[in-house]
Design a protein around this nucleic acid. Structure first.
Lengths: 122, 122
DNA sequence: CAGCGTTATGCATGGTGACATATTACGGTC
DNA sequence: GACCGTAATATGTCACCATGCATAACGCTG
């Protein structure tokens, strides 16, 4: 709920609330949680550390990464197994573009939501 | 999925998709399914017939109606038990206003979604 | 006053998705 | 070559929600 604007409650107990995704060939391609996951992978350098940092099970995080990689024209995340530190993962250029794509859509939606909530009267 | 525009897939496999609700004091107040339910109650004159018409269990429909009535300043649905036909339910004026309120928000969101999907490039 | 279909309510069940647990593979490092 | 932490994958468990069933109250109709 931290992503929401509660100001409109000052004037009305009702407010518009919503979520957006970007669908791909298999269904959900990018969503809020998926994109945060991508950003954490960039930040931490591994899927497991990213998952831990947002209290998500590694299994779930891995599934999401796999789903995104399958649906994108090029992998958003590349992972290395074994080696120094056991391996790791990092964002590709396509991954960076995907993050920007969704962030833009998200911001546009949030702008719409705020604007519409402003004059919501029941 | 019948509510979606698939035309944008002609140009790109990716499209924006989302859902909106109107939140009230307890959380969800009005959503797509809830408003369809209200409209069916108006159409059929009973909660159970409305639920049947949209393949929803009576129990679930009743819970939704109760949730909406609790959160609105005045009941959206009034119900009569016993009598001719066993009873029934109908939309109040507040119910009609609630339907319009959500339909307007829904339409506005759908317009935003179509417009944004039009120039979605990955 | 018996019958009917609906409201109103409790309770058991079943399916889905998120989560935890467990195991193997991997390949640099020491 | 043993160790380490991660990737990769299978399997089991739990919480939640919708559904289904079961029952009682209700009040007009015949």
């Amino acid at each position: 709920m931290s992503e929401n604007d509660r100001d409109s409650r000052k004037t009305s107990p009702y407010r518009l609330h919503g979520r957006v995704w970007i669908d791909g060939p298999e269904g959900t391609f990018l969503g809020y949680g998926r994109v945060v996951l991508l950003e954490r992978i960039r930040e931490h350098g591994s899927i497991s550390a990213a998952a831990r940092s947002m209290n998500m099970s590694y299994r779930h995080a891995w599934d999401l990464v796999e789903s995104m990689n399958r649906q994108a024209p090029a992998p958003l995340v590349i992972s290395r197994t074994g080696g120094r530190g056991g391996g790791g993962a990092s964002l590709t250029e396509a991954g960076e573009r995907a993050v920007r794509l969704f962030r833009n859509a998200w911001d546009a939606y949030k702008t719409f939501e705020k604007e519409y909530s402003r004059n919501l009267r029941f």
